[in-house]
């Protein structure tokens, strides 16, 4: 398993070298978005309106951070469970999204979209919200302020520690449960 330091926006060449199990330290701009934000992004696409950020090469972090205390750019900021965004992810991937960051399983449609359009799914450690916030050096709300913790934020990350859970070639890191037949 390899270890890479990558910068956003991600390119096809970046994605092609990644395999499930690789460690990636991600730096640059990423965008937060969870359930309600994904619904709104999809509504904008349906209406033919521009999105609040460019999807080309973008990375979306499924996170709803806790409020930033004084003197910090952000509160705790660990991943939320990703399957709830499965309904929206294939469309975003087909439009240029290169990486989603969360925790937990993705469905077959998302995995297919990642194969078809060269994208990856990264896992961050769930429940390590305080620790992960150390890698976020700046954060500002760029859309849907009314959603509170679910607003879309532009976050600057430095060496954000991620694992490749699903790569663009059908590889998956998660252990299959040993169930008796």
């Amino acid at each position: 398993m390899a270890k890479y330091s990558l910068n956003t926006p991600l390119t096809d060449a970046d994605i092609e070298k990644l395999r499930a199990g690789d460690v990636v330290l991600l730096s640059g701009i990423i965008y937060s978005g969870r359930d309600a934000a994904h619904k709104k992004l999809t509504d904008l696409l349906d209406a033919g309106k521009p999105l609040p950020f460019d999807l080309k090469g973008a990375s979306i972090y499924y996170v709803g951070p806790s409020p930033a205390p004084p003197g910090r750019p952000i509160g705790a900021a660990g991943p939320t469970t990703s399957y709830r965004m499965d309904a929206y992810a294939p469309r975003l991937i087909s439009l240029g999204l290169k990486a989603s960051i969360g925790k937990g399983k993705r469905n077959d449609e998302v995995k297919k979209a990642m194969r078809d359009h060269k994208a990856v799914y990264f896992g961050a450690t769930g429940g390590a919200g305080a620790l992960l916030s150390k890698c976020i050096t700046a954060s500002k709300i760029i859309a849907f302020d009314e959603l509170g913790p679910e607003a879309v934020r532009e976050m600057t990350v430095k060496d954000f520690p991620l694992l490749v859970i699903n790569d663009a070639f059908g590889g998956e890191l998660y252990a299959k449960p040993n169930l008796p037949e």
Binding site: V63, G64, P65, S66, P69, R72, G75, A76, A77, G78, T80, T125, G126, G127, A128, G129, A130, L131, S133, K134, P149
Partner: peptide, 18 residues
């Protein structure tokens, strides 16, 4: 997770954002 717990205790950031 142990490092996270130490950090949360020191900084008073929540252990988990949820």
């Amino acid at each position: 997770l142990l490092e996270n717990a130490d950090l949360a205790f020191e900084t008073k950031l929540p252990l988990c954002q949820d």
